[in-house]
Simulated scan of single mutants.
Amino acid sequence: MAGFICERLGPGNNRTAGNGKRIEAKTYPLWTQFGSYRSIDYSTNQQVAGDPPMPAILLLGTGRRTGILIHPAHPPKLYLSSIGCLNPTSEIGPADPIDFWDSRRRVIALLDSLKTHAPAAFEHEVSSRIADASIVVEGEPTRQLAAPRRLAADVMSADTALLLPISKKSALVCAKWLMENFGDKIKNVTAGKSYKPKHLCAIVCQETAYKWIPWIGRHSTQTIVERAVFDASGDFPGAPRTAFPVNTKAFRDKYGKAFTDLLIEEANKTRRLQGWDDKPWVYKGYGLFQYDLQHVKTAEGFFVNKEWYSFDKCLGRVIEELDSKLTAQRGNLWKAIKAYNGTGSRAEQYMQNVKAFTEYCEEVTGP
Rank of each mutant, 00 (worst) to 15 (best):
residue 5 I to G: 09
residue 121 A to F: 11
residue 220 S to K: 14
residue 221 T to E: 14
residue 275 G to W: 07
residue 77 K to I: 06
residue 119 P to Q: 15
residue 201 C to G: 08
residue 166 I to D: 00
residue 232 A to F: 07
residue 65 R to S: 04
residue 159 D to V: 11
residue 89 T to E: 03
residue 245 P to V: 13
residue 12 G to P: 02
residue 47 Q to G: 02
residue 148 P to Y: 03
residue 138 E to D: 14
residue 22 R to L: 10
residue 47 Q to H: 14
residue 296 V to Y: 05
residue 84 G to F: 04
residue 165 P to Q: 09
residue 336 A to Q: 01
residue 320 E to A: 08
residue 100 F to I: 14
residue 252 R to Y: 07
residue 140 E to H: 02
residue 125 E to V: 01
residue 12 G to K: 01
residue 58 L to W: 00
residue 133 A to N: 12
residue 69 L to A: 03
residue 38 R to Q: 10
residue 173 V to E: 03
residue 233 S to R: 12
residue 92 I to D: 02
residue 215 W to S: 04
residue 48 V to G: 04
residue 185 K to P: 01
residue 70 I to F: 01
residue 319 I to W: 00
residue 232 A to D: 09
residue 114 L to Q: 10
residue 75 P to F: 10
residue 83 I to W: 02
residue 124 H to F: 13
residue 103 S to I: 06
residue 350 Y to N: 02
residue 340 Y to Q: 04
residue 327 T to M: 07
residue 327 T to Q: 13
residue 253 D to N: 15
residue 347 A to H: 05
residue 29 P to F: 08
residue 266 E to T: 00
residue 335 K to N: 13
residue 204 V to M: 14
residue 364 V to G: 01
residue 153 A to F: 13
residue 262 L to D: 05
residue 77 K to N: 12
residue 118 A to S: 15
residue 40 I to D: 01
residue 9 L to I: 15
residue 331 G to T: 12
residue 189 V to T: 06
residue 101 W to L: 15
residue 312 D to Y: 04
residue 335 K to P: 02
residue 17 A to W: 04
residue 315 L to M: 13
residue 339 A to E: 02
residue 118 A to V: 10
residue 254 K to F: 04
residue 181 N to Y: 02
residue 125 E to F: 00
residue 277 D to T: 12
residue 75 P to W: 12
residue 314 C to T: 13
residue 58 L to I: 00
residue 325 K to F: 07
residue 121 A to I: 10
residue 41 D to S: 13
residue 345 S to L: 06
residue 26 K to A: 10
residue 139 G to S: 06
residue 233 S to Q: 15
residue 88 P to F: 02
residue 161 A to V: 08
residue 102 D to W: 00
residue 296 V to F: 08
residue 15 R to S: 14
residue 109 A to T: 13
residue 361 C to T: 12
residue 226 E to V: 04
residue 342 G to I: 08
residue 105 R to Y: 07
residue 183 G to N: 05
residue 194 S to Y: 01
residue 50 G to F: 11
residue 88 P to N: 06
residue 96 D to M: 14
residue 310 S to C: 09
residue 104 R to T: 06
residue 346 R to V: 03
residue 54 M to A: 10
residue 280 P to K: 05
residue 364 V to K: 02
residue 202 A to R: 03
residue 65 R to T: 00
residue 188 N to C: 12
residue 274 Q to K: 11
residue 54 M to Y: 03
residue 7 E to T: 15
residue 312 D to F: 06
residue 253 D to W: 14
residue 248 T to W: 09
residue 106 R to F: 04
residue 4 F to C: 06
residue 366 G to R: 04
residue 315 L to F: 09
residue 39 S to M: 04
residue 85 C to Q: 06
residue 336 A to E: 02
residue 330 R to T: 10
residue 223 T to S: 12
residue 228 A to T: 06
residue 351 M to C: 13
residue 210 Y to A: 15
residue 130 I to W: 08
residue 367 P to V: 03
residue 9 L to V: 15
residue 285 G to R: 09
residue 182 F to M: 04
residue 186 I to T: 08
residue 16 T to R: 11
residue 224 I to T: 05
residue 118 A to N: 11
residue 259 F to M: 11
residue 72 P to L: 09
residue 298 T to R: 09
residue 355 K to C: 15
residue 334 W to R: 05
residue 17 A to M: 07
residue 226 E to Q: 14
residue 342 G to Q: 09
